[in-house]
Amino acid sequence: MTAPDTPRRSGLRGFTAGPSPWTDLDRPPLDEAALRRALIVPGGLWTSLDVLAETGSTNSDLAERARAGAPQGAVLVAEAQSAARGRMDRQWTAPPRSGLFLSFLLRPEEVPVERYGWLPILVGVAAASTLGRVAGVEVGLKWPNDLQTEIDGAERKLGGILTELGGGAVVVGVGLNVSLRAEELPVPTAASLALAGATTTDRSVLLRALLREFAELYGEWTAAAGDPQGSDLMRAYADRCTTLGRRVKVHLPGGAELVGEAVAIDGDGRLVVRAEDGARRAVGAGDVVHVRPEPR
């Protein structure tokens, strides 16, 4: 494999070089071999790890590998994505090597399919815990799993998680803004670890820590057959969920809206909203907006 900064020889004209990943010294490329040595260990969850210079979507790429029989624990990381997808089919872009853009493949055979809805929540808990411990940034989870932090008194989004089910496999995609500068943010409500004052923006350190944290929590969850209480996942999520206890507006599929107070997470990972008429409704899909209290 050619090293990232090795020039390429072109015929008899000598050396020519394409764009170097070392051009932006604040954003060095990931070391695929070092990540494999650190994460792929006997008896561990992770079975393969590939780093792509660029792709459309790591989720789409890994879903194709899953259909071809890729085992649980396959990890695919991209330095840049041109067709990244988020929840509600949203598209987003980011400068190369400015964040962590990865997907991993799970086959939780010990867990009933009806409990798979807890997987994106599990990933969110692992990510929030990792960023607090390793980067020193307090991160909350807006239901179901938007990674948020507070900057200058405002909630800002650091990243998101997308899970897709197919053929008995679950592909989990994670997008996290790491070193984006203010002028590079896609929308004013976005944020990055750098802008949040993180103690480290070393993507290799963050990636290793995130995958190790998730592997540990995933082991506990599968050992409990996906039971969110038996694995302590429900409590861990509730402790980090910034939506609970808030007045919310939920944009539901089909264009309807639900306004009320977010009062609980039910056994299926759905958000329970107490509507203005007092009725409780469990929401499994929708876009949640935190509504600020009316000024007095």
Score class of each variant (00 low, 15 high):
Gly140Met: 02
Leu165Tyr: 11
Gln229Met: 00
Glu216Ile: 11
Gly197Arg: 13
Leu217Phe: 08
Leu217Glu: 14
Gly219Glu: 02
Arg156Asp: 05
Leu131Lys: 03
Asn145Val: 02
Val178Leu: 07
Val172Asp: 00
Asn177Lys: 03
Ala215Ser: 15
Pro144Thr: 14
Gln229Lys: 01
Trp118Ser: 11
Arg107Tyr: 03
Thr189Asp: 14
Thr149Lys: 10
Val134Glu: 15
Arg107Lys: 13
Gly132Lys: 08
Arg212Lys: 12
Phe104Glu: 00
Glu110Tyr: 00
Leu105Ala: 00
Ala182Tyr: 06
Gly167Leu: 01
Ala135Gln: 12
Leu217Val: 10
Leu158Gln: 07
Arg203Lys: 14
Pro228Glu: 05
Glu164Leu: 05
Ala190Ser: 14
Gly153Ile: 05
Pro108Ile: 07
Ala127Leu: 15
Arg181Leu: 13
Pro186Trp: 03
Leu119Gly: 06
Ala196Met: 05
Leu206Phe: 12
Thr189Met: 06
Leu165Arg: 14
Val139Ile: 01
Arg208Asp: 11
Glu110Val: 07
Leu210Ala: 13
Leu106Met: 13
Val187Leu: 14
Pro144Met: 10
Gly197Met: 13
Gly160Phe: 13
Ala169Gln: 03
Leu185Met: 11
Asn145Gln: 05
Val137Asn: 06
Leu185Asp: 03
Glu110Asn: 08
Ser129Tyr: 03
Ile151Cys: 09
Ala154Pro: 04
Thr130Gly: 11
Ala135Ser: 14
Arg203Leu: 14
Leu100Gln: 05
Leu100His: 11
Leu102Tyr: 12
Ser204Cys: 13
Leu106Asn: 04
Leu180Tyr: 06
Thr199Gln: 15
Ser192Met: 03
Leu185Thr: 04
Pro186Lys: 04
Leu147His: 06
Ala135Tyr: 11
Val137Leu: 08
Leu102Asn: 01
Tyr218Ile: 00
Gly167Ser: 00
Pro188Gln: 09
Glu109Val: 10
Gly168Ala: 08
Pro228Cys: 08
Glu114Ser: 12
Gly166Pro: 03
Ala223Met: 03
Thr200Leu: 14
Asp152Ser: 11
Val205Asn: 12
Ala215Gln: 13
Trp143Ala: 09
Ile161Leu: 10
Asp227Tyr: 02
Ala190Gln: 05
Ala225Lys: 10
Gly173Pro: 00
Leu217Pro: 04
Pro144Gly: 06
